[in-house]
Amino acid sequence: MDSQSVKGDAVVGAASRGFDGGKLVNGRKRHLVVDCLGLVLAVLVTPASVTDRNAACGMLPALREYFRRLRLIWADGAYTGDVLTEAAHRLGLRLDIVRRSDDSRGFTVLPRRWVVERTFAWLMRSRRLARDYERRSDTSEAFVLWSMTMVMSRRLARHATRRQQQRRNLAPAA
């Protein structure tokens, strides 16, 4: 679980945009929950001023309803807090916070956190998601899901092409 702040275009209304003081971005924030492969399970678009903790409290019940076998969620340090821990405990989820060590300098790859960061990188390849151009936040959520659908369908098509080539190579010569 992680979030990404993106700048909002001029058409994004003042009611659905905010300022993220940590990233110094005026726009919206995309909150994602992904599986171990990096495929999107849940997405929520909020004003950038909404904290990750508050957004997660709103996402967890719906996530639990759709994915009943879900037991463990890895998240970064922004998801700490008694309210979120209690909400996860009530839903039967274990929230594992992956923290960066204090003595590390510069960029370090953190276990399990790189999966959601990679998903954000896949999504940013969609030109429409490089910035938030949508008036409504549910339309932004739909574009995130559409972009992830494109990523998955390209992989499936590539996999099907490989299988067809393997079948041709194994076919007996006449």
Rank of each mutant, 00 (worst) to 15 (best):
Gly38Asp: 12
Glu134Phe: 00
Asn169Leu: 13
Pro47Leu: 10
Val43Lys: 11
Val12Ser: 03
Tyr66Asn: 10
Trp114Arg: 05
Asp103Tyr: 07
Gly22Gln: 10
Ala75Asp: 07
Arg17Ile: 00
Met150Thr: 15
Arg112Glu: 15
Phe107Lys: 14
Glu117Asp: 11
Ala171Cys: 09
Gly18Ile: 06
Gly8Gln: 02
Asn169Phe: 10
Leu39Tyr: 12
Thr51Asp: 14
Arg99Trp: 04
Leu170Thr: 09
Asn169Trp: 11
Pro172Asn: 10
Lys7Trp: 04
Arg90Ile: 13
Leu72Gly: 01
Asp76Ile: 02
His31Gln: 15
Met1Asn: 04
Arg131Asn: 06
Leu72Ala: 02
Gly18Val: 06
Ser153His: 11
Gly21Asn: 13
Val12Met: 01
Val25His: 05
Ala48His: 02
Val33Ile: 15
Ala173His: 13
Asp138Ser: 04
Asp132Met: 00
Val151Phe: 13
Phe19Cys: 04
Asn26Thr: 12
Leu72Gln: 10
Ser5Glu: 04
Tyr79Trp: 05
Ala174Pro: 14
Asp132Cys: 01
Arg155His: 12
Phe143Tyr: 12
Arg94Leu: 05
Asp82Gly: 09
Thr139Arg: 13
Arg127Lys: 13
Trp74Gln: 07
Asp138Pro: 03
Arg167Tyr: 02
Val34Lys: 03
Gly92Cys: 08
Asn54Gly: 02
Asp76Cys: 00
Val144Trp: 05
Arg128Cys: 07
Trp122Ile: 08
Thr46Gln: 04
Arg28Gly: 01
Ala173Arg: 14
Arg128Lys: 13
Trp114Pro: 08
Asp138Ala: 03
Met152Ala: 14
Pro111Phe: 01
Glu117Pro: 09
Pro61Cys: 08
Tyr133Ile: 00
Arg113His: 14
Glu65Lys: 08
Arg113Ser: 14
Leu44Lys: 12
Thr139Glu: 05
Ala157Tyr: 13
Thr139Leu: 12
Gly13Val: 06
Lys7Gln: 13
Gly77Pro: 01
Arg28Trp: 01
Arg168Thr: 11
Arg155Ala: 09
Ser126Phe: 15
Asp2Tyr: 02
Pro61Met: 02
Pro111Trp: 07
His159Trp: 08
Thr119Glu: 05
His159Lys: 07
